[in-house]
């Protein structure tokens, strides 16, 4: 597909100006893939949360963007990686209300609710990689919350 070249990208995350580019690129990529307005907004917001985590807690890093397909579905995959201190207690970091810095404690847990698939890998002292994927025209995940 010719749009793939416009979507694939690797963006640095070194300053709050880079966060703006991250949001704009994700917005454009999601629009190109045919995401609806609400889904675009969710994905851009998730990207903003995760990129800020990369910047604030990971000491900077990068975001890789790639279109993905599965069967008939099209989607967008975003990978945020840093080589910062890592996350000591992942479960706790993913729970609501947890915060290790600025923000309302919505960073990881909040971003997870905005996407279809969410993976995080972290090694203490060696950095964190968060990979999220959302699919076009798929209803939000059903969550079994209390």
């Amino acid at each position: 597909m010719s749009t793939a070249s416009e979507i694939e990208a690797c963006l640095p995350i070194r300053s709050d100006m880079d966060l703006v580019w991250v949001r704009q690129h994700v917005r454009q990529a999601a629009a190109l893939l045919g995401f609806g307005l609400v889904d675009q907004t969710k994905l851009v917001t998730a990207a903003s949360e995760l990129a800020r985590n990369t910047l604030v807690h990971g000491g900077g890093g990068q975001m890789d963007v790639a279109p993905v397909t599965a069967g008939f579905g099209r989607g967008l995959r975003l990978t945020f990686s840093d080589s910062g201190p890592g996350i000591a207690d992942l479960d706790r970091a993913l729970s609501d209300g947890y915060t290790s810095g600025d923000g309302l404690g919505m960073g990881l847990g909040g971003a997870r609710r905005l996407v279809h698939e969410f993976e995080v890998e972290s090694t203490e002292g060696a950095g964190t990689t968060v990979r999220v994927t959302s699919w076009v025209n798929r209803p939000p995940r059903v969550r079994e919350e209390g």
Partner: peptide, 13 residues
């Protein structure tokens, strides 16, 4: 905007 409101609620905010 509606999309922003929906996203904020989903985010838990």
């Amino acid at each position: 905007r509606p999309a922003v409101a929906i996203t904020l609620v989903e985010l838990g905010l």
